[in-house]
């Protein structure tokens, strides 16, 4: 059993690695993770070092991507911004994944009235466009990075709950679940040892793609002034601060925009690659 699991995993890793797009996605994620981890070592300046005499300067040897409207080094701010966006993306998706998976697995396994109650709640949440709901939550709780994470996390719960429930419904009919029950395993043990590992791969795929969505949502909230507050170098907030100077200093808006696009592209490519690697039945189109 253990050995079979390991070789299935190795096959999936092999399939993932054969896919060029997946490799590029993984590379982008690795790159931005390293940038986020070593931001103080890489950045030539601090993210809030203002120089009011050197405002909106074009790219030069001193400031690689120029300076913004307060004379801060755009390159350094984008580097530090990787920390914010990666943290927000991973934290929001982790929260949504854990909550959603627990709710979905419980709903699918127990069934009946609990299933109806949980899934109708999820349906109600899905009736709102996600960012609109997130805006509502942050507007109620007040702007800030923690509330952004909380809001993006909450609005993504239904996605994971539905994926987890669908897998659970299929898995709980298998013999090994009946076997586990017949051996006297408690409900939580059946859920965690028999069902969760087998429901994991669609959840992992959804979570990887979800990080991309969460980073975009967080950037949208940041753009609206609901996310990280100044002088935190959040990419969405940087965009909204600098788009007014687009005609005179395009670099200040371009750099965070490109950074968002690259990170989101990375997670999307990696997510698609995982999807193809973990679902071998898939025919190559």
């Amino acid at each position: 059993m253990r050995r079979a699991e390991r070789s299935a995993l190795r096959m999936a890793v092999k399939r993932f690695w054969r896919n060029v797009n997946a490799r590029i996605g993984f590379g982008l994620i690795a790159l931005f993770t390293l940038i986020a981890l070593f931001a103080p070592k890489i950045a030539p300046a601090g993210y809030d070092d203002e120089n009011l005499l050197g405002r909106l300067k074009s790219p030069s040897g001193l400031h690689w991507i120029g300076t913004d409207e307060l004379g801060r080094d755009v390159f350094s701010r984008v580097i530090y911004g990787a920390r914010i966006s990666m943290t927000v993306g991973l934290a929001a998706v982790s929260g949504a994944l854990v909550t959603g998976a627990l709710l979905g697995i419980a709903a699918g396994y127990v069934g009946g009235r609990l299933d109806g109650l949980i899934m109708r709640m999820m349906d109600i949440m899905l009736a709102f466009p996600s960012v609109i709901l997130a805006i509502g939550i942050v507007a109620m709780r007040g702007p800030g990075l923690n509330n952004t994470i909380l809001a993006v996390s909450i609005v993504n719960i239904p996605v994971y709950a539905r994926v987890a429930r669908a897998s659970t419904l299929a898995i709980k009919e298998h013999e090994y679940v009946t076997a586990a029950r017949a051996m006297g395993a408690r409900a939580w043990r059946v859920l965690l040892r028999a069902i969760l590992p087998n429901a994991a791969s669609p959840l992992v795929v959804q979570a990887t793609l979800g990080v991309a969505g969460a980073i975009l949502d967080a950037a949208a909230l940041g753009f609206l002034g609901l996310g990280a507050q100044p002088p935190t170098p959040e990419w969405g907030a940087m965009l909204s601060d600098s788009y007014k100077y687009l005609l005179t200093a395009f670099w200040a808006a371009l750099a965070p925009g490109v950074a968002i696009a690259l990170v989101v592209l990375g997670f999307n490519l990696a997510g698609d690659g995982l999807h193809d690697a973990l679902d071998p039945r898939l025919t190559q189109g």
Binding site: P129, V131, I132, I135, F223, L224
Partner: peptide
């Protein structure tokens, strides 16, 4: 849904 959200950003 994303068009409505996008409308907030685009109109801004």
């Amino acid at each position: 849904g994303s068009l409505l959200t996008g409308a907030i950003l685009t109109e801004t």
